[in-house]
């Protein structure tokens, strides 16, 4: 997760991220895990459960999933970035606009299996 952010920043601004910023990101990441005292197994399980819940509605690009805990000023949050590959079911109640916002290729509806 933090590495992904660092990579993104590096791509945006060009050149390597300063080691000072890198160490802060790494620290916030490890401290988030230290502070909630969840084992890596439990974090992995939580990741699986959340992915499974989301996957009921949309198809997630599992390769590109970013998942982790992050900490700031002694509060900790779960951060998940789950890119949507396509719709699982065609449901007219689900706004397509909402989906296209986070979708890299908004042409998903062409391959919709009608329930």
């Amino acid at each position: 997760m933090t590495n992904a952010i660092a990579d993104l920043l590096e791509r945006l601004f060009g050149g390597k991220l300063e080691s000072r910023d890198r160490v802060k990101q790494r620290l916030k990441f490890i401290l988030a895990h230290d502070r909630v005292a969840l084992t890596p197994q439990l974090v992995a399980q939580m990741r699986q459960d959340i992915l499974a819940a989301i996957a009921k509605y949309v198809e997630i690009d599992e390769e590109a999933v970013e998942f982790g805990l992050e900490s700031d000023r002694r509060s900790t949050v779960v951060i998940a970035n789950l890119p949507i590959r396509g719709l699982r079911h065609f449901d007219p109640n689900v706004s397509q606009l909402e989906l296209t916002l986070s979708e890299p290729e908004p042409k998903a509806e062409t391959s919709e299996p009608i329930p």
């Binding site: 300063e18 000072r20 910023d21 802060k24 916030k28 401290l31």
Partner: peptide, 18 residues
């Protein structure tokens, strides 16, 4: 080193440890 962004500043450490 802090000035050249190669070491965390005191503020950085305080932000993390609160």
């Amino acid at each position: 080193m802090v000035k050249s962004n190669d070491m965390m500043s005191v503020e950085d450490v305080l932000e993390i440890l609160s």
